[in-house]
Design a protein around this nucleic acid. Sequence first.
DNA 1: ATTATTGATAACTGAAATGCATCGTTTAAT
DNA 2: ATTAAACGATGCATTTCAGTTATCAATAAT
Lengths: 302, 302
Amino acid sequence: MNDLRQIRYFLEIAAEGNMTRAAERLHITQPALSRQISALEDRLGVALFDRVGRGIHLTAAARNLLPDLRDLMQRARAITERAELLAGRERVRLSVIAPPQSIEVFLADALVAFLARYPDAEIKIVEAAAQDNQDLLERGEGQIAIAARPIGPQFQARDLALGYIHLAMPKKHPLASKDKIDVTELDNEPVVVMRRGTLARDMFDSACRLTHTLPTIAHEAGSPQALTALAGAGIGIAIMPFTARVDRPDLALGRLYANGRPLTAELAAVLTPNLFVTPAIDALIEEVEKSMHAAPFLEPLP
Amino acid sequence: MNDLRQIRYFLEIAAEGNMTRAAERLHITQPALSRQISALEDRLGVALFDRVGRGIHLTAAARNLLPDLRDLMQRARAITERAELLAGRERVRLSVIAPPQSIEVFLADALVAFLARYPDAEIKIVEAAAQDNQDLLERGEGQIAIAARPIGPQFQARDLALGYIHLAMPKKHPLASKDKIDVTELDNEPVVVMRRGTLARDMFDSACRLTHTLPTIAHEAGSPQALTALAGAGIGIAIMPFTARVDRPDLALGRLYANGRPLTAELAAVLTPNLFVTPAIDALIEEVEKSMHAAPFLEPLP
DNA sequence: ATTATTGATAACTGAAATGCATCGTTTAAT
DNA sequence: ATTAAACGATGCATTTCAGTTATCAATAAT
């Protein structure tokens, strides 16, 4: 085992499922990649990919080795970073994985503040659905992800904020006067929700199931803006995600409760295992936290 | 961080303390090694060695990175081995670190039995003083070491046997009739012991200190044979190491006690961290265990 | 049947690693 | 003080290896 490069190549193909595309992402040509993988297979003495028709897929052996190889790469990276820190010329290069709304509502602001402190830092933002966040982190697509607890045991995490699911409805709506609204009050009520796969939607579904509430789904929207627009038009009460700004004065806002407790999610910064946490990373997380607390419906954790 | 080779080179120099010798062990020439290290230092941006006069020594940064780099290499090796196992063509290649007497008394026999089961295995034996055993393991000089507990927390271990420190003396000696002999009975008594650094000697010294016993060290010997010879000549009672055969009918044997309990050491097979334990390794340890239990003064652990 | 996609292969090129010879410095021996 | 040995660094030639371009074979989509 001499070469981390071949491992990096292998991981890229495993993540991409396709040699040609992996080669592009690695900035090499496809034949070069193909030959490196052959070499790796020879050296390990085990086939890593089934060449089936055109296209490939992982062999059982490769699936077996995959987690450890990922771990090895991350460790190697962590060591390099520590070495650079020891050399005093730390180069901050981070990829942050976050859901679209998080980017819009607080990540952008946080990055501005962070870059004021670390002007030379290179921050890349990877947009991903909430549910894919931890997968991408595990595949090494980034070092930090914004996600809600629970978080896989293999990760470290830093608490960021407590997010409340809130409701938006026209001011004339019968429930508009209330600050706390229980899920059960939404029985048979027309609601507009985010599409499946977003955190707020999934939590809302769970709350309904647990309380045997059956709201009428009037519409599934793809963005918080669409949600508020529909609510404003009287189509239904909008179930707003945690990280959404509501800037419409015609709408009343309330918090959603279930069993007497507010529906909340603990948002956290999830860190790649073995990541060596530099002061810069700490600073970034701190800025994210500050920026989140400035947003409505996101409160500091106790 | 692309290249495990450079890390392997670095570790070899760190272990050897000398580039020329490290180059020999790596089967490359000294200039090649020198350049690779320069390249590694450039890439990490930090000096790993101070070039002081002729010769080198590790910088603080290098000492800081050393354990993690070792760990990385061991993980890489473990992965390769697992891959070979998955490929069904496991090539058993082990280095076993053991003190000289262990080799003589039971390791040799164990290897014969093991090789009968795995004829293609390549086993290398590294002879090392008991006290150096764990260091060598940590430096990656071998995968398995025979050592006495306590064992560093970073290692896995398998219990092998309980060893008793025993005494050898002429049959006419006043203490010869006793089976159990307490350390305190050796006060002012002439004894012959192994040289410092062997396990039995160190334990004997500790026992004397704890019980305020001051035997007269008549001689320090380098081998168990010398010990029995001196005891037979009446120079003093021989404090025998755990793993020594006494085949002289003119000598009486007894067990050494302190505070009413026999002086024992729990011998164990210590395994490199992250070592992937194959059936072959299990078999080897099993054979070692069997072979030890056949030796006198080594008993199975409860 | 035709075309586009995808991975493998061959021949070539350029970069990187290695070996050999040698130098400069430091330490040990005399 | 002088010499010899030890040790790491450097210049140059050679080999090894990863990468590129061009192309092929197999397969899936139309």
